[in-house]
């Protein structure tokens, strides 16, 4: 295994985030803080507790997930799309590095960035609402799995996209709506029965439910099902990446 190459890609991608510090880290934190101000302080004071959890605290896991999912996909997709766009991908393709090593470098860096953002948002949330994490290891586990899974999805989008419009298409038109409709700001139980059934087809529901359970021990679906769904989603992404690498999809003619 070409460890030097993996480290090089990883460091390069992390350095890119560091050099665009405001965009990479400050922007998601500011956005999430605004959500806390609007939903937690302004609206939250008028909403009853949900399943015994104050509304301001209840939305914390959903807001972290919102940032994680969008940041993971954006970071990973842009990371591999950029060298494709500039033509610098030739160097990666001609280097003594396997596709798996390329994947570890790019997805590892994107997942790390998202993980850091998730932790920063968690700390920021502590300034706005009282927080208690019932199962910290489960919380970290969900956090890491989600970062990796959605970074894999972002990597797939970055390989698939051949222009900037496509790069933004899935995150804006699919991921963000799914997160908003996935119980970030409410419990699925609050929806009419028909919508509850429809909601169960949204994979993000399982992520947010499991993540919220690790904080407050309240969940829309069982934690085992949440974990199974995220692992299934990760395996699906890995299978797609494997196929893309095997066929050289949009990388090697």
């Amino acid at each position: 295994m070409n460890i030097h190459a993996i480290k090089t890609i990883y460091k390069y991608e992390m350095l890119r985030a560091w050099e665009t510090l405001l965009q990479s880290f400050a922007s998601p934190v500011i956005t999430t803080s605004l959500y806390f101000v609007v939903f937690g302080s302004a609206i939250g004071t008028r909403i009853q507790q949900i399943e015994g959890v104050p509304y301001g605290s209840f939305i914390v896991p959903g807001l972290i997930m919102l940032a994680l999912l969008t940041q993971s996909t954006a970071n990973a997709s842009f990371g591999i799309f950029l060298p494709k766009f500039t033509g610098a991908i030739y160097e990666i393709m001609s280097a003594p590095i396997s596709f798996i090593e390329i994947l570890i470098g790019y997805v590892g860096a994107a997942a790390t960035k998202s993980f850091i953002i998730g932790l920063i948002i968690l700390l920021t949330a502590g300034f706005f609402v009282p927080l208690k994490i019932a199962h910290p290891f489960w919380m970290l586990g969900f956090l890491i799995l989600t970062c990796i899974t959605f970074s894999l999805l972002g990597f797939i989008i970055g390989l698939w996209a051949n222009n900037f419009e496509k790069l933004q298409l899935i995150p804006l038109l699919i991921i963000t709506p799914l997160v908003f409709l996935g119980g970030s700001f409410y419990s699925v139980d609050m929806l009419p029965p028909a919508w509850q059934t429809i909601t169960l087809f949204n994979p993000v529901v399982y992520l947010i439910s499991g993540f919220r359970w690790s904080f407050f021990e309240v969940a829309d679906v069982s934690v085992g099902l949440s974990l199974s769904m995220i692992v299934l989603f990760m395996l699906t992404c890995l299978a797609i990446v494997w196929w893309m690498f095997k066929t050289g999809y949009r990388l090697r003619q």
Binding site: H4, A5, K7, T8, A95, P96
Partner: peptide, 9 residues
Amino acid sequence: RFSRGLFGK
């Protein structure tokens, strides 16, 4: 430096 690392050096 990036190029050198990428080639495993």
